[in-house]
Structure formats: C-alpha cells, structure tokens
Amino acid sequence: MTSGGRIGALLFTALALVACGGSASGVRIVDLYRTADGQLELSLRLDLPATMVQGLLRGVPLGFQCEMQADGRRSTQRRELRFLPLSRQYQLREPATGYSRSYDSRSAALAALERWPLPLDGDHEGAVRVRVHLDRGRLPSPLALSAVFDRDWHLDSGVVTWPAGQR
C-alpha cells in the first residue's frame, strides 16, 4: 500500500465511523503455518457479504491484497477473483505472475483464496506482520467512490502479528 493510500485510509477511518457506525470485516487471519513442502502459508477465513457476492457474479473483479512486513522488509501480494459467465467458472489470478486457475464453484475458489502462500523462507523464525484486505481502490470507478460509504465493501483483517504478541 502506498503512503498516500495509508494516509487516506487513516483519514477515512473517522469518516467511515461517522458514516457507517463502524466497519464490519469479512476476512480474518486464522493461522500462519508451514506446509508439507516447507512453504509458509496464511490461513484465512473469508466471509463475503451478499452484496460482494452479487457484485462478483455480476462481473466485478474482487482484488485482495496481502501486506506483509518481516525482517524490516515490506512486500505486497495481490490476488484477484472474478467470475467467468460463459464457462460459469471462478478464476483466481495473480496479476504479478500471470498465474491463474479456474474453479467450478465459488466455494472451491474461496478455499483456494483462503490459503495464501507468503514469499518467505520456510525456516523463517522472526515476527511477521500481516494484513489482508479488499483493495477498494481497484474496484470499478463508480463502485470505488460509493464503496467508501458502504461497509459491505470494507473487508479488512487489520494488522496481525505472528507469532501473536510480538511486535
């Protein structure tokens, strides 16, 4: 996330609180674990609001962003979920790598999205600060503005430090 965006998010917090009476988050970081092949992976719990599901089915691509800070370095990963009406499939894509995968069902696509590999060595031992949120700034233009005032489009895990309690 850019610094401008961060400031904007901070400034927005007050506005959002006034406009919405508090933001409801549908994404939660459940666990950070090491996979069988030694990869560090985030386990998420995604609960898309009905409005968002409706938007997804009506062609709105949902961009999710994972911000990570470890060993004093920051990195950002993006994944995009979209629905393909012709094949009735859900496509999960990583814009940075061009990798994409199609799923016949939304649950399968969400299950794939809920496993988010981190670009860290498997033997990494230090604290990791992670935040996963819906990238509202990449929503289609009309929605990007109105989503500022709609808490259904405010998916944000908040910053989670792993292992818990470390800073």
């Binding site: 959002a16 929503l139 289609p140 990007a144």
Partner: peptide, 12 residues
C-alpha cells in the same frame, strides 16, 4: 478508478 486509493483522502 486511477485515483481509487486516494478517494477517502480526497473526500476528507
């Protein structure tokens, strides 16, 4: 929206 990330800041 090219300015999407800055909408909140712009509005504030």
């Amino acid at each position: 929206a090219r300015l999407g990330p800055y909408y909140p800041a712009l509005l504030v």
